[in-house]
């Protein structure tokens, strides 16, 4: 039964990946990536990595993809032009590079002398890939990586806020509509020469409500 599940999940993952690249609208690409991630979680389950599969579905397909959908909705999906600036030659070149890399990686992984690659893998022990094992490894052998990744998350959060906040100096379009408290408190006309030249004063020429 496992080979059937493997081929279904693998075809789903590859189809989702192709959809991300081929679909023109970014929102459809995001949805295709969600499908890809769910198929990949099924592959992780087949590899007995229960906790990673659950984290994949909750963190990736849940939280990160919601972030993507929000940004696509904010920026607006732009239908990008199909042609590359370099024309068909650049596209052919990039696909050629990718094809060569595919052949090379397949030789490196499958054609290598790794005898264990063709096998089923180590015998399954109960508790492999469970949250208990992952937690124990994270808090003993990989404690430094765990702590450093928490710092990395903090830095990334601060960086995202700094990057995406509104800046005062940038002509934003939205900033111009705002007025500050100082403008409200200041008197409208100061009685200077410049005001009389430009015809601006604190007293309006025409009383309101006449027209």
């Amino acid at each position: 039964m496992a080979p059937v599940f493997f081929f279904i999940a693998a075809l789903g993952a590859i189809a989702g990946a192709i959809g991300v690249v081929v679909l023109r609208h970014p929102l459809y690409s995001v949805l295709s990536l969600v499908f890809h991630l769910l198929s990949l979680a099924a592959l992780f389950l087949l590899l007995r990595a229960e906790f990673v599969a659950a984290a994949q579905v909750v963190v990736y397909a849940g939280a990160v993809m919601v972030l993507y959908v929000f940004v696509v909705a904010y920026v607006g999906g732009t239908q990008e032009p199909v042609d590359l600036p370099g024309g068909a030659r650049a596209r052919l070149l990039s696909f050629g590079v990718v094809g060569l890399l595919l052949v090379e990686l397949l030789i490196a992984t499958l054609g290598s002398g790794l005898s264990a690659v063709g096998e089923e893998g180590a015998a399954y022990e109960p508790g492999f890939g469970s949250p208990a094992q992952i937690g124990e490894l994270l808090l003993t052998d990989f404690l430094l990586a765990f702590e450093v990744s928490s710092f990395l998350l903090l830095i990334a959060a601060v960086g995202a806020v700094v990057l995406a906040r509104r800046r005062g100096g940038v002509d934003d379009g939205e900033v111009e509509g705002r007025i500050s408290v100082a403008q409200l408190l200041a008197p409208e006309g100061l009685g200077s020469m410049a005001e009389s030249v430009s015809g601006r004063s604190g007293v309006t020429d025409e009383p309101e409500g006449r027209g």
């Binding site: 690659v117 893998g121 180590a122 492999f128 992952i134 490894l137 052998d141 990586a145």
Partner: peptide
């Protein structure tokens, strides 16, 4: 899975953390 060792899964989780940071920035 091939080696029956949980270290690779820890690597995968750290990669997911780095990917989340990359997405945020």
């Amino acid at each position: 899975r091939m080696h029956g060792n949980g270290d690779g899964q820890i690597f995968a989780i750290i990669v997911m953390v780095v990917a989340a940071c990359e997405v945020t920035v």
